[in-house]
Design a binder for these strands. Structure first.
Lengths: 204, 204
DNA sequence: ATAGAAAACGGACCGCGGTCCGTTTAGTAT
DNA sequence: ATACTAAACGGACCGCGGTCCGTTTTCTAT
């Protein structure tokens, strides 16, 4: 029954859990469970730190020690689906995974990201607000590196910066806004992304 | 001494101010003055609604009635420089203003925007946080329309969505992060933007 | 079993953005 | 001048994220 789910956020240096205390483990389980219930029942905006502490029968300080901040909590909640998506573009089959041309992979990446955002939009937005740095969170850094590598194969002068620009275009808040406020269909979004990538990476 | 500065946020239907009361005008002046002092002396993050109310010798409710929210206050503070920038790309000389090719104009727009953001980054970020809609604020809508029109003259399939994507790449938080956290020079940013536009808009 | 230390706990506390509503004040009509 | 009305006012109040610190619990060494 050790560590049934969720690897510790900070992978401590050598390996193995540095003896997580039993009460801590129990409380984490309780908190995650309560958090998911709260989200499922009342939506992300109802997932208040106080409400969570109350529902999980735990002190508020405990919630913050566990997750650091509300954004950290949201990231923990996201980590499973995020990991799945990451596996997709790092090890999965083409066109998303290794094997296709950089252009194809980048198009597939954007498309996958768009649908991922549309499924987890509220969580992603909550994970981004007031985070010390929306951009330097592991998942985002990884996505950026991925794009950067793909761009490097296409004669982009400054792949690092260009990757940032492209990543901005996949910003959750922007995508959710386009769809929910302006009624843009996911299809239009992905097709426009494909056009952007195609025009950017065509060799001529 | 009527309306010495700052047009009312909601341009009331026909014209003319609907008799703004003298105390309201006096308080607005006091508030804007105090706000600028606070920012100049202690930075944007010190511009608290309470601190502002206190410094301007005004009730907190007054601050909120005047500006609606902290984001609204920030937008008011920005409106002068924002208007100037807008005049630049709408009526100014080429390459920013009318006269150049769409590609040149778009490059110049991004460059101008980047430097604008680097001068007003903190204010822009504060204006964007917790705004009902970061995107549907007048200045942003105008910029979007501008890009859209320029794109329409190239053969972009979906100028509306593409304009959104490009605008995302100029997001203040992103630009400030690149420069301040990662030490990217403004020059690199603008050159990468130029490359993006060039590749996007070259015809064949 | 026992003692000691480290870690986890819990909830009072803070500052902030934002709201509400009873009170005051500026303009207007007489 | 006076009375009336609509607007502006002000500050108590709320919920939230986040911190702090005295108390409790778990583990380990003896």
């Amino acid at each position: 029954m050790f560590l049934v789910s969720s690897i510790p956020i900070q992978p401590d240096v050598p390996f193995g859990p540095p003896h997580e205390r039993s009460d801590a483990a129990r409380n984490r389980e309780r908190l995650l469970c309560a958090a998911r219930e709260l989200v499922d029942e009342f939506g992300v905006e109802a997932l208040t730190m106080d409400a969570l502490a109350c529902k999980a029968q735990v002190g508020k300080g405990t919630v913050f020690r566990r997750f650091g901040s509300r954004a950290g909590l949201m990231m923990t909640l996201l980590s499973d689906s995020e990991s799945e998506f990451q596996r997709g573009f790092m090890f999965g089959p083409p066109p998303l995974g290794p094997g296709g041309t950089p252009s194809e992979r980048l198009m597939a990446f954007g498309e996958g990201r768009i649908y991922f955002v549309l499924e987890n939009g509220e969580l992603l937005k909550a994970a981004a607000t007031n985070a010390r740095n929306r951009f330097d969170v592991p998942a985002t850094v990884l996505a950026h590196r991925h794009i950067e590598v793909l761009l490097r194969e296409a004669d982009i002068a400054d792949p690092w910066v260009m990757a940032m620009s492209l990543l901005s275009a996949l910003d959750p808040e922007r995508i959710v806004n386009d769809v929910r406020v302006h009624g843009i269909s996911p299809k239009r979004l992905t097709e426009s992304w494909r056009e952007l990538v195609a025009r950017l990476m065509r060799s001529s």
